[in-house]
Design a protein around this nucleic acid. Sequence first.
DNA 1: CCTGCAGCTGACAACGTTGTCCAGGCTCTA
DNA 2: TAGAGCCTGGACAACGTTGTCAGCTGCAGG
Lengths: 361, 361
Amino acid sequence: MDKTDDRTGRRIVPDTTRRADRLPGNRYGNRPTMKDVAARAGVGLKTVSRVVNGEPGVTPDTERRVQEAIEALGFRRNDSARVLRKGRTASIGLVLEDLADPFYGPLSRAVEEVARAHGALLINGSSAEDPEREQELALALCARRVDGLVIIPAGDDHRYLEPEIKAGVATVFVDRPAGRIDADVVLSDNFGGARDGVAHLIAHGHRRIGFVGDMPRIHTAAERLRGYRAAMEDAGIPVEDAWMSLGATSPERVRQAAVDMLGGPSPVTAIFAGNNRVTVTVIRVLAGHRRPVALVGFDDIELADLLDPGVTVIAQDAAALGRTAADRLFRQLDGTLIAPERIELPTRLIMRGSGELPPAD
Amino acid sequence: MDKTDDRTGRRIVPDTTRRADRLPGNRYGNRPTMKDVAARAGVGLKTVSRVVNGEPGVTPDTERRVQEAIEALGFRRNDSARVLRKGRTASIGLVLEDLADPFYGPLSRAVEEVARAHGALLINGSSAEDPEREQELALALCARRVDGLVIIPAGDDHRYLEPEIKAGVATVFVDRPAGRIDADVVLSDNFGGARDGVAHLIAHGHRRIGFVGDMPRIHTAAERLRGYRAAMEDAGIPVEDAWMSLGATSPERVRQAAVDMLGGPSPVTAIFAGNNRVTVTVIRVLAGHRRPVALVGFDDIELADLLDPGVTVIAQDAAALGRTAADRLFRQLDGTLIAPERIELPTRLIMRGSGELPPAD
DNA sequence: CCTGCAGCTGACAACGTTGTCCAGGCTCTA
DNA sequence: TAGAGCCTGGACAACGTTGTCAGCTGCAGG
């Protein structure tokens, strides 16, 4: 009968069969090497190497014998040794902020697809927005001798990468620029997107517009704030401090910030939300608010069209960011590229209703 | 001035600085080795190794000289060579279906956190639901000599992994079981969850309940279908074929399937949606439907609580799946585990409104 | 019958690191 | 002061693969 662990509710079904017994043996648990294959096939070591790599100059008969030995022993080439000898790992590293964030999934996937097209594997890690962890990860990847690095930086000083870049590690920064270092950068037009979004609200009659954003030490957050200010200034609207929330990252604090700017002495009639997480929190606040408040969010969010009203957003193309960065990485590896560039991808305003609400006061 | 590429709208800002010139040199672009460091510090090779690895038996003065040489040369240990020598790579592989799917982000992140806690890196790849690609990826990871593999299988025959497992590669399957092979498996209780969800609809008075699911060759889809059938049978309700859609994967076909079962001769009054993607599509269909239709979806989705009505779901804990699988992986590597097990994690019914609507006919 | 050539094959070194082991110099004690 | 023991440092082999090069075979041509 099944046992059920009371605390966790897990059901545990023990298998009656036994795990294939593993010879403790030497490292890799007694994995056969080319030498073993050669011995079994009665050929030389190098001949096995030739067969494994599809090099010419092997008689069909010899090749067959080698293949049989490979089958029989379950041989698989050790890429570590290969890398050591050849100097290229055919793998690239991706350092991002948080794989669980829906914005980074498609980006990561796009990088992977490009890597795959170039026959490379992707090794990735999350920095959790911690500069130290970013550095630790990036350097660990360099120690593995990845051919290149795609980095979504958490920190703002990347001089630690200088020796690596000098040593030939291709490097591209995405989503946020590199700090104190000369490198390729692929960004969304955060400033322009935010400015357009806020201008959109202004065009619909709003003047008291709130901005809820991330910590300004994060480049994207700073740029979006700058876009907000620019749009307001262009329209000749003086911004009140109470309309801006910067650096409230936890949902609770974002919620509080939104509530405050909706209820203050000069309450906002519209909110510009600085990223997908903030947008979701603000939506929750507005859902419980008595009068309608316009909203434009940076980053598209799933189901935004099904809410009432639909959520108007400034969408950036995460997949395109990843694709562009990875493309550039491999062009660096080709030697096609000479000078680092800064590439900005445009954003797109998607109207769904929430950004077109008139001011309600 | 900036050039703007007309087609793509990209803004390209050429950097005036020049990329640090890279000596073409030998592989790794002339990376210094321990030998170089030793020469510069005027010590033996092994002494450098000792310093780098923090081994005892080095005078502070010698250590300082070595450290200085390391700094000066920008030396970084080559982990490929290290791995070759030591036999452990301190990295694990994750083969999943699609990183861009919001369900797998948290799972992947959870695996990464556990790996990190064990000092291991995560190498991952997407199978794109293609069994061949899954195999290709898994074997490529084995060639890199990852210490272990966490696999979300796309295929249903994993005998190709037998030599690897025998050779000592720890292996855990998540979300779906392994095929024709004896291995650890961590699953959600797909059958029970679906049965509970459908029973929930029945308890609210529904009898004509539709099921929109994925291809039954996918284990989770088959189990959820089985749960649906079980709940209906328990309630003594005969299921009509027109109420079930299996294997419609594209949004268009799912949409059509939903429309069909809502408009047929005996139209359903409630729908059970088999996964997050299907749920979203069904929500879109129901949003345009004239009479209210109850809905329960498998997998939680973001913003589900903000829709009107809120979406009732059977939630599984993706992070817990990943965490449990990774834990087990490392316990295999410890040698703590003997026999493969099948672990099922419970699901949770979250009531938000859509599943509590009464039948409208 | 010998030479030359082409096509296969294998011996060997090298990649950069770590584990083993020994040498040399020091201190401490008898 | 001599011997024992400890501490530090270095020489060397090995990990599994690939690149280089030379040897071997068989065959065509002189």
